[in-house]
Design a protein around this nucleic acid. Structure first.
Lengths: 199, 199
DNA sequence: CAAAAAACCTACTTATCGGTAAGTAAACCC
DNA sequence: GGGTTTACTTACCGATAAGTAGGTTTTTTG
C-alpha cells in the first residue's frame, strides 16, 4: 500500500507530536489527538497499541537520528578540536531541525514521567560525556592540546552545548545557535590548544 | 488558631509537592493529593481556590528563597571572583536543599505547561545573566579580570552552574555539588584573573 | 465476481476527573 | 446558652478520560 503524508497513521503521529509537545503526555488526550488528525478514535487503536504506544513510536523516531549522529563521531583519532567543533555543530543543527522532538525529550528528562513509558536518556548523556573524554585525551596524547583535567574540560564543553540547546527549548531572550557554540567553545579551546588540526 | 505541621493545610501542600514532583501537574489528581494528605476532597477547596491554586501557592514558596538569595548579590563592587564563587555556592546549596521544588520548576521550564498556570521563569534567567554581566564588567573595570567578552564568559559560567544543577535533578551518573562548581569555575577564572580579591 | 484484507465507523463501556451542595461537629465569643 | 465561625464530612454533579464491540465500506487478490 502506498504510504503518503496524508495517511491516517502519519497524520496521527504528527498530531500526537504536536499535542504531546504543547501539553505533555497526560494532558494531551486521545480524543484531542484523533480530532487533530481528522480520524475517529478506534483508528488510533488500529495503528498503535494504545496512547503509550503512539508515544513510544514518537520517541523511537526522535532518538534514531541522534544515535546515527553520535555513531559518526565514535572513533576520532586526530584533529580533535575540529572534530568536536563539527560534532557540536551537527548536534545543534539536528536539534534546531527537530525542535518538537527535542521539546518532548526535554520534558521527559527534566520533568516527571506523567504516566509515559520510561526511557533512559541518561544513557545518551553518559555516551556523549565518554566520547568527549576520549577525544580530549586523544588530543592531549597527540600533542594537540595541553594537559588538562579531561573530565572538567568535558564538563565545561557539555555545559556550553547544553546551555545553548536549552536556549532554543525555553522561550529565551538570547536564543543561541551553532555559531554561538562554535565561538564560545573556540575561546575555551584557545586557552589550551597547542597545535590546531589541518583544515 | 494554632497552626502546626500536622495541620491539614500543611499536609495538603506537602502531598501536592510530592505528587506534582513525582507525576507532573496534569497526572497528579486532586483525589490522590487529598488521599495522601489524609483529608477529604472538599478540604482542598476549603484552603485553596482549586487545583491551580495549590500549585500556585507551591510555586510562590519555591521562588521566595531564590529571590532573597539573588537580592543578596545585587550590588557587587569588588572581589568579583570571590562574590561570584559565593553566589554560585549559595545557589547550589539552596538548590540541593530544595530539590523537590527545583524539580517542580524544572518540569515547568523545560516541559509543556500541562494546564498549570503560567510562570515566567525566563525572568530569573535574564536577571542572573544580567547580574553576572554587571559583576564581570565591574571586575574588568577594577583591573581584577582581563578584558573578556562579558556575555560569552557569562554564558560559560551560567552553563557550568546550570549543568551542575541539572546533574542533581536528573538521575545522573556523575552528580555534582557546589565544590565541583567552585573547582571548574575556578579554572575558568584562572585563565583571566589578573588580581584576586582579598580573603 | 467473490472472498479476504485493510481501513474505517458508530455506539458504547467503565472509570475517574475537577469541583460543589448541603450538612455536621467543634470551638469560640458575647 | 445561643449564635457565629471554623473545620470538616458525605453524597453527588457534569464532563471527560482511555479503550472496545461490533459493524460497514473500500480496496485488494485470486
Amino acid at each position: 500500500m502506498n504510504i503518503t503524508s496524508d495517511d491516517a497513521r502519519v497524520r496521527l503521529l504528527e498530531a500526537a507530536l504536536d499535542l504531546f509537545t504543547e501539553k505533555g503526555y497526560a494532558a494531551a488526550s486521545v480524543s484531542e489527538i484523533v480530532r487533530r488528525a481528522g480520524v475517529t478514535k478506534p483508528m488510533l487503536y488500529y495503528y498503535f497499541k494504545n496512547k503509550e504506544g503512539i508515544y513510544s513510536e514518537l520517541m523511537a523516531q526522535a532518538l534514531t537520528d541522534f544515535k546515527i549522529l553520535l555513531k559518526k563521531y565514535e572513533n576520532v583519532e586526530k584533529d580533535v578540536y575540529i572534530q568536536i567543533n563539527n560534532m557540536f555543530r551537527d548536534i545543534m543543527n539536528l536539534h534546531a531541525a527537530r525542535l518538537k522532538y527535542a521539546r518532548l525529550i526535554y520534558a521527559m528528562v527534566y520533568g516527571p514521567p506523567q504516566g509515559a513509558p520510561f526511557i533512559d536518556f541518561e544513557e545518551y548523556h553518559a555516551i556523549m560525556a565518554e566520547m568527549l573524554n576520549k577525544m580530549i585525551r586523544k588530543g592531549v596524547e597527540n600533542g594537540e592540546l595541553e594537559d588538562v583535567v579531561t573530565e572538567d574540560f568535558t564538563t565545561v564543553l557539555l555545559s556550553v552545548l547544553f546551555f545553548c540547546m536549552d536556549t532554543q527549548i525555553i522561550k529565551c531572550s538570547c536564543m543561541m545557535d551553532s555559531e554561538d557554540v562554535s565561538r564560545i567553545t573556540g575561546k575555551l579551546f584557545d586557552k589550551i590548544i597547542i597545535k590546531r588540526g589541518e583544515g
